[in-house]
Design a protein around this nucleic acid. Structure first.
Length: 588
RNA sequence: GCCUCCCUAGCUCAGUGGUAGAGCAGCUCACUUGUAAUGAGCAGGUCAUCCGUUCAAUCCGGAUGGGGGGCUCCA
């Protein structure tokens, strides 16, 4: 591709071009950013190169030679410099032990183009059966926002045209189930411009799904002996000074509101005002609840739970529908326990988390354990070791794949995160369980132990969904909007074959409603076929249809989302079937 | 925040330097036919906002807001 780019746009300088999952990219510094038409030109130049069957020849070189040869490529020279200086930063261009240049040889055996690269390469460009350039985008040179922005071209490459097509179909499928698109099509939520970027409103149908999600979560938390608390969305600055958030997180917070400030006529401050912040986290509030009176070891573990809505001023570029927003609600809990209780607590917590996620329909998980970064961390060595070991044991007990994220923990404690795969194989980070050595100290949390001494509790942060909105988005994509009945905004729609059966069916729907089913009658002027189509597009799990035959028999006929039907089911039996599926949280 | 592309009716999208159209949805009327679109009519838009260029801007330029794809980030 780089050859094609330089053929087409000779002023373009080369950056880095590694292979990635499903394909490759290459960073360039072109005179003008690439347009979609440019990509087409480049792609046809590439096809020509592939057709020519240029052979790749590996050539070992040294720093001085390479610098001379690539003097016109400043970025490549920088890479050679890194390599030469013994910096061990691995780069696809200069990795390994020696500098290599690959020459592309034309039919006559003469080099037509060369590039610094670690390799390996295919023997010839003929061995590239299927590829496609996907998009161009800006990317910082060597991934640092302090560096200049280059233009990156992404491509995908496959061993066969069929596999390329399959990949493109997967992308199309992902686009179809994009929660932002489904959020609009199914009337679940929206982001009115008037409110502000990253701030969502939930519509009635989205509200039903969300409430069903929350209600079930609440119930399960009750079973696990969590206690429910509430805290305000606003607080004076002092609280976040105490927690330390203002020191290291202020750029992620909405700026303060200054209340009751008095100014002199010249604009100088007569009386300082109070600063109030929107909360970006709930933990300081829960700590204050813990601290509200003397605590005893008998109360531990104390598990405080809240659906806490927080506000974070995320950079505009990272916002993504409802999965990455500026205002969102965490299913947040903080567990205060003794050191001795910690291992058991972590173990049962992880089991609880995984089982709950399974109840929502996610099946495929792996765990990631983030350990201490010695450079940046607070707390005692043995505390870290103990906590990390407890997390590891809990993880191993789940018999799931465990990935180690060495040194990836936050400075205040190790954590474990649950990664879940969705219906089309994409991975989402879901729950996190995080041990905190920092906040109990900052808040001087204490409890009276059995011997009367004052001890500091261990604090565990945990969120199962991460945020309800985000989990909502993930489930929407996982189910492609076809929620299982227990979550579906409308569970049943009644469709009379013709107007004259509407009254009969209306009675059936009423009966369903009375037994707690979310059922509606479609008594619009549309034809039956149109009603079926509408219900189908709304992804309603059950269509209950009635005509002459059903009415005579006191029955209804089912049409399921997959188009299957079951006719002449007695009303009581139909209701029982629906209720059982809802209660079991099964998908249909 | 940075690079880049985009913003026309509720939605999906045509279109033009001389102030706009379709399909679906909506409303009205008629019709109603066992499992994915009955027909007719009506209504609906400061062409995101503001500022320039121009005799004239939805169209050209700039700024702001919102969005897409990436980069960086995600305590």
């Amino acid at each position: 591709m780089a050859q094609a780019v330089q053929q087409t746009f000779s002023q373009t300088r080369l950056g880095i071009g590694p292979p990635i999952t499903d394909g490759f990219y290459y960073d360039f510094e072109p005179p003008q950013p690439f347009t979609p038409e440019d990509l087409e030109k480049i792609e046809s130049a590439m096809r020509k190169i592939v057709k020519e069957g240029q052979r790749f020849k590996r050539r070992v070189t040294n720093e001085a030679e390479a610098l001379k040869e690539l003097a016109h490529e400043p970025y490549k020279c920088e890479l050679i410099g890194i390599k030469g200086s013994g910096n061990d930063e691995t780069s696809v261009e200069v990795g390994g032990t020696e500098l290599t240049i690959y020459d592309n040889l034309g039919r006559d055996g003469q080099p037509v183009w060369s590039d610094l690269c670690r390799g390996p390469h295919l023997p010839s460009t003929k061995h590239i059966p299927a590829f496609k350039l996907m998009r161009s985008a800006g990317a910082y040179w060597r991934g640092s926002e302090k560096n200049p922005m280059l233009q990156r071209i992404y491509g995908t490459a496959w061993p066969s045209q069929d596999e390329l097509n399959a990949y493109l179909e997967l992308l199309a499928e992902a686009e179809k189930r994009d929660h932002r698109r489904l959020g609009q099509e199914l009337d679940l939520f929206s982001f009115p411009e008037e409110i502000g970027s990253g701030l969502a409103v939930f519509h009635p149908k989205g509200g039903i799904v969300r409430r069903a999600m929350e209600d079930y979560s609440r119930k399960r938390h009750e079973d696990e002996n969590y206690e429910f608390v509430y805290s305000p969305h606003l607080t004076k600055a002092a609280l976040f000074q105490k927690s330390g958030h203002l020191d290291w997180y202020s750029e992620g917070m909405y700026p303060p509101m200054i209340m009751d400030e008095e100014l002199h006529a010249d604009g100088t401050i007569k009386r300082a005002g109070q600063q109030y912040y929107m909360k970006p986290m709930n933990c300081p509030f829960h700590n204050l609840i813990f601290q509200s009176r003397q605590r005893s070891y008998r109360e531990l573990p104390l598990r405080l739970f809240e659906f806490g809505t927080v506000y974070r001023y995320e950079k505009s570029g990272v916002l993504h529908g409802i999965t990455r927003a500026r205002g969102f609600t965490q299913d947040d809990a903080h567990i205060y326990c003794t050191k001795e209780q910690m291992p058991g607590e972590l173990d049962s917590l992880l089991t609880f988390v995984l089982n709950l996620l399974r109840d929502y329909g996610l099946q495929d998980f792996y765990l990631e354990l983030s350990t201490r970064n010695p450079e940046k961390s607070v707390g005692e060595d043995h505390d870290w070791e103990e906590a990390t070991e407890a997390l590891r044991k809990a993880a191993v007990a789940q018999k799931l794949e465990l990935v180690l994220d060495e040194g990836g923990a936050a400075f205040y404690g190790p954590k474990i995160s649950v990664q879940a795969k969705d219906a089309i194989g994409r991975t989402w980070q879901m729950s996190t369980i995080q041990v905190d050595f920092q906040l109990p100290q900052r808040f001087e949390l204490e409890f009276a132990s059995a011997d009367g001494s004052r001890q500091r509790p261990v604090m565990i942060h945990r969120a199962l969904f991460g945020s309800i909105e985000r989990f909502f988005g993930v489930l929407t994509e996982h189910y492609s909007g076809a929620f299982p009945p227990w979550l579906a905004p409308v569970q049943v729609v009644g469709i009379p074959v013709a107007d004259s059966f509407a009254e009969y069916l209306s009675g059936v729907i009423k009966e369903m409603k009375a037994s707690g089913i979310r059922a509606d009658l479609d008594d619009s002027d549309d034809r039956m076929q149109k009603k079926v189509r509408n219900a189908q597009m709304q992804k309603i799990p059950y269509m209950v249809i009635a005509g002459e035959e059903d009415m005579k028999a006191g029955a209804v006929s089912f049409r399921y989302r997959n188009g299957e039907q079951k006719n002449g089911i007695p009303v009581a039996q139909a209701i029982a079937e629906i209720k059982a599926t809802i209660a079991a949280r099964e998908q249909v």
